[in-house]
Lab assay of single mutants.
Amino acid sequence: MDVFMKGLSKAKEGVVAAAEKTKQGVAEAAGKTKEGVLYVGSKTKEGVVHGVATVAEKTKEQVTNVGGAVVTGVTAVAQKTVEGAGSIAAATGFVKKDQLGKNEEGAPQEGILEDMPVDPDNEAYEMPSEEGYQDYEPEA
């Protein structure tokens, strides 16, 4: 019985440690998101679009440190934060509304985080759909 109880105690310690790591990862992701939003706020009209992409990228980098179902929630929060940063930029006159959601080359930025393969159960990952990809044929 002692062996059984000791095993359960060790398992509990492992769960607590994993929860603490997840909590730490979420806190880091939130900190990076805040950094990115402050970065966007300090940019001029020309830099705002690039700044919004930076927020998304920093958040995406930190999301990889967070495991399990938390990833889905962090990704949703990050996307809403990026959308909010863009709205703030438009409201303050840093950028025109028609410039939001495009990178410096004018290509749409939507789907940055949505296409990231995420499995809350950590069982399997699927690649994003290939609808947006084109076949590449090298020139002879």
Score class of each variant (00 low, 15 high):
residue 5 M to C: 04
residue 136 Y to M: 09
residue 30 A to T: 07
residue 140 A to R: 10
residue 89 A to T: 09
residue 57 E to Y: 08
residue 122 N to C: 03
residue 2 D to C: 12
residue 49 V to W: 05
residue 32 K to Y: 10
residue 82 V to I: 05
residue 125 Y to C: 04
residue 25 G to V: 14
residue 92 T to K: 04
residue 74 V to N: 00
residue 5 M to H: 00
residue 119 D to T: 03
residue 79 Q to H: 13
residue 97 K to F: 09
residue 97 K to T: 03
residue 70 V to R: 01
residue 26 V to F: 15
residue 136 Y to D: 01
residue 103 N to Q: 10
residue 62 Q to C: 13
residue 72 T to K: 12
residue 42 S to N: 10
residue 65 N to L: 07
residue 23 K to S: 04
residue 131 E to Y: 05
residue 30 A to R: 03
residue 78 A to M: 11
residue 72 T to E: 14
residue 36 G to I: 08
residue 76 A to G: 10
residue 118 V to S: 09
residue 13 E to H: 02
residue 106 G to E: 09
residue 32 K to A: 05
residue 63 V to G: 03
residue 22 T to S: 11
residue 80 K to N: 02
residue 47 G to K: 11
residue 122 N to W: 10
residue 53 A to N: 03
residue 91 A to E: 04
residue 67 G to L: 14
residue 139 E to D: 04
residue 9 S to L: 02
residue 67 G to N: 05
residue 66 V to S: 01
residue 67 G to S: 07
residue 9 S to P: 00
residue 34 K to D: 00
residue 78 A to K: 05
residue 1 M to A: 00
residue 22 T to A: 06
residue 37 V to L: 15
residue 60 K to V: 05
residue 134 Q to I: 04
residue 28 E to D: 08
residue 75 T to F: 12
residue 11 A to D: 00
residue 82 V to Q: 11
residue 41 G to Y: 08
residue 44 T to N: 01
residue 124 A to F: 15
residue 77 V to S: 01
residue 21 K to E: 01
residue 50 H to G: 02
residue 78 A to E: 01
residue 90 A to Q: 15
residue 94 F to N: 13
residue 3 V to N: 10
residue 61 E to W: 10
residue 54 T to C: 15
residue 87 S to Y: 09
residue 67 G to Y: 04
residue 74 V to W: 11
residue 115 D to K: 15
residue 35 E to I: 12
residue 11 A to L: 07
residue 68 G to V: 09
residue 81 T to N: 02
residue 119 D to K: 02
residue 125 Y to E: 05
residue 38 L to Q: 10
residue 76 A to D: 02
residue 33 T to L: 06
residue 2 D to R: 03
residue 121 D to P: 09
residue 78 A to T: 15
residue 45 K to Y: 02
residue 13 E to R: 15
residue 99 Q to C: 14
residue 16 V to Y: 14
residue 43 K to S: 02
residue 136 Y to V: 10
residue 101 G to Q: 08
residue 46 E to W: 10
residue 135 D to M: 09
residue 28 E to K: 08
residue 121 D to C: 07
residue 1 M to P: 00
residue 72 T to I: 04
residue 121 D to F: 11
residue 134 Q to C: 14
residue 89 A to V: 12
residue 56 A to Q: 03
